[in-house]
Structure formats: structure tokens, C-alpha cells
Simulated assay, not measured.
Amino acid sequence: MSENDLSKIIVNTCFTVHRGMGPGLFESVYEEILYYELKKAGLSIERQKGIPVYWDSLKMDIGFKADIIVERKVILELKSVEEISRVHQKQLLTYLRLTKMKLGLLVNFNEELIKDGIQRIVNGL
């Protein structure tokens, strides 16, 4: 399944979760429900996956933790904040570069309309 195919499933799942729960909950609540729903859809999901970072001969076993990785192709960075800032977009792009993945979705569940809270971040896609 391509990144774009996965993206459609993920976005539709985000719509379902947001419609059911509404905005304003902690990020961890949305993460738990998304994990459950995406697993239920038969997708391979990794949650709070530690990603190593390398610098010269130094290896940091956990340079960062990805909120959710879908099918080892798409990183989901989940937020429940007043407003997404540029640093969140840059953060996700850096995660994509470090993992050599091509697509990330930055999802802010604290929006009245979830369509306003989903941003695609691409790395050579």
C-alpha cells in the first residue's frame, strides 16, 4: 500500500475519532484511540517508537519517539494544542529525514473542524 493510500485511511480515521470525541482532550487519548482504530483496520502500527539518532560515531538509542508509525511508511505526530507552530512542522520533517520515510501527518485534534488540523509533511514524495 502506498503512502497516499495509507494517508486516506489515516485521515478518515482521524475524522471518525474527532467526530466521536470532539476537540480538547489530551493528545494521549487521541493516540490511544487512533492506535486502536488503525490496528482494527488491519494496519501494522508502532506506537511511541524510539528512533535512534546518529552523530559521527555517537549513537543515541532514542533520539526521539514517534507518536505513531503506520506500516513503516507514515509518521503521525499528534497534537492537542491551541495552534500548530512552524517548529512542529520542522520537527516532523526532521523525523522523516532521520527515518528516510516520505510522508508524515501532523494532526492537531484541538481544532473545531479536524480538516483544519491535519497537515501533510513530505520528504521527497
Rank of each mutant, 00 (worst) to 15 (best):
F15K: 07
T16C: 14
V17Y: 11
V17D: 04
H18L: 11
H18N: 08
R19N: 14
M21K: 14
P23H: 14
L25N: 12
L25D: 06
F26P: 09
F26E: 13
E27C: 01
E27T: 06
S28H: 01
V29D: 00
V29W: 04
Y30C: 06
Y30I: 05
E31M: 09
I33L: 06
I33V: 15
L34F: 03
Y35Q: 13
E37Q: 10
E37V: 01
L38G: 09
K39L: 15
K39G: 09
G42F: 07
G42S: 06
E46V: 12
E46D: 13
R47N: 04
Q48K: 13
K49Y: 11
K49I: 01
P52G: 02
Y54G: 07
W55E: 13
W55H: 09
D56Q: 09
S57R: 10
K59Y: 06
M60T: 13
D61A: 12
I62V: 15
K65M: 12
K65S: 11
A66H: 01
A66T: 03
A66N: 06
D67M: 00
I68G: 02
I69E: 01
I69Y: 04
I69N: 05
R72Q: 15
K73N: 09
V74S: 02
E77S: 06
K79F: 14
K79R: 09
S85A: 08
V87W: 08
Q89H: 15
Q89W: 10
K90N: 14
K90V: 15
L92G: 01
L93M: 12
L93I: 11
L93S: 12
L93V: 11
L93Y: 15
T94C: 09
Y95N: 00
Y95T: 00
L96I: 01
L98E: 12
T99N: 01
T99D: 04
K100R: 15
M101K: 05
K102R: 15
L106R: 01
V107Q: 03
